[in-house]
């Protein structure tokens, strides 16, 4: 595996990007807690998720997860106005945080792995839901402490399949050949 795509490098890249985004955009310092490698991150059953990915020679899917209280703190700091409940501006703030954190990870990685394109961020807010991604390996889970709150960045980076590999997978799944 390319050293840059190894989980330790990826986790360090996430740490740098998250710390930079918090300190520069929000004027907040976050403490990076020990990261974990998981086959599949624990189910997130509620709160706010910012989902984003990038693709090129390598593909990544990533989630920025936090509580509604943390999301309101982020929006407070980003817009310099208080937010006591999750509203559009709070969701926009989480989407933009996901965009900047993972966008900066992408920029770091593409110096080594080639150009990649960032997807459009999506935000989910609610209770009693299950997040599931079809990849069951290679997840890096990077938690950050900000005051009493925890924000987690989950990211999975894998090599993109060649057209031949994609065709083979399609044939196996749908044509049974």
């Amino acid at each position: 595996m390319n050293d840059v795509a190894k989980p330790a490098y990826l986790a360090d890249s996430v740490k740098r990007a998250t710390s930079d985004v918090f300190s520069m955009m929000l004027g907040m310092e976050v403490e990076a807690l020990p990261y974990r490698f998981e086959a599949e991150p624990e189910h997130v059953s509620g709160g706010i998720l910012g989902l984003i990915g990038f693709s090129g020679a390598w593909s990544a899917t990533a989630t920025v997860c936090c509580t509604p209280a943390m999301a309101c703190r982020i929006a407070d700091a980003l817009f310099l106005t208080p937010h006591s409940a999750v509203e559009d501006e709070v969701l926009d703030a989480v989407a933009e945080m996901a965009n900047m954190i993972i966008g900066n990870v992408k920029t770091d990685l593409e110096n080594h792995l080639g150009m990649m394109s960032l997807s459009i961020p999506t935000v989910i807010y609610g209770k009693n839901f299950i997040k599931r991604t079809l990849i069951k390996d290679h997840w890096v889970v990077a938690p950050f402490q900000a005051g009493d709150e925890i924000l987690e960045v989950h990211i999975c980076l894998i090599p993109t399949k060649t057209p031949e590999e994609k065709q083979h997978a399609f044939n196996r799944a749908f044509l049974h050949v």
Partner: peptide, 23 residues
């Protein structure tokens, strides 16, 4: 957020006055 050298050069070549990365 696009900070790759390729994108920066592309913007400069197209006539961008300046370039600033998010964050």
């Amino acid at each position: 957020t696009e900070g790759s050298q390729t994108k920066v050069m592309e913007a400069v070549n197209l006539g961008a006055t300046g370039y600033l990365r998010k964050p």
